[in-house]
């Protein structure tokens, strides 16, 4: 089963909508609750990153018999140094975003912890693609 969501950069009023919708879908499909929690944490962080950093983006969710595969593709500034960005506490978020309690440099570490597989590809000045894979036992 495939689902698609479009994300508008900068629109914090809708941040988390796609994650919330995916959570409902996974519940309806009777996916294990602990797995849903992990998927939702990773997806929310990736969704918020598009809102906080990119111009716009697309989330493609594929629910397969053995895994949930989520691909987030954005048009945005990209990530110059992915290894640096993976470090807890590293953030390039604006002051405004930080005041809301985002941009603490915990997003990518949260994704890594909660997805079984995390793949990030980025071209500075063009955009970033994040793939989150969670296996269903």
């Amino acid at each position: 089963m495939d689902f698609k969501y479009t994300i508008e950069g900068g629109d914090f009023s809708r941040a988390g909508h796609a994650s919330s919708d995916v959570k409902k879908l996974l519940k309806q499909l009777n996916i294990d609750n602990q797995l849903i929690k992990r998927i939702v944490v990773a997806l929310y962080e990736a969704e918020v990153n598009i809102v906080a950093h990119a111009k716009n983006g697309v989330i493609d969710v594929s629910i397969l018999p053995d895994q949930v595969f989520i691909k987030l593709t954005d048009q945005g500034p990209g990530i110059k140094d992915i290894n640096l960005a993976m470090q807890e506490g590293y953030s390039t978020a604006s002051q405004k975003v930080r005041e809301m309690g985002f941009g603490a440099g915990m997003g990518l570490p949260n994704m890594k912890k909660n997805a079984d597989k995390l793949n990030i590809e980025s071209t500075p000045g063009v955009g970033t693609t994040v793939e989150l894979t969670t296996f269903i036992q």
Binding site: V41, M100, A104, M106
Partner: peptide, 13 residues
């Protein structure tokens, strides 16, 4: 906590 990602990563149901 006042950090949303901290709560996302560490709070429980």
């Amino acid at each position: 906590s006042d950090l949303l990602s901290d709560v996302m990563g560490h709070a429980s149901e």
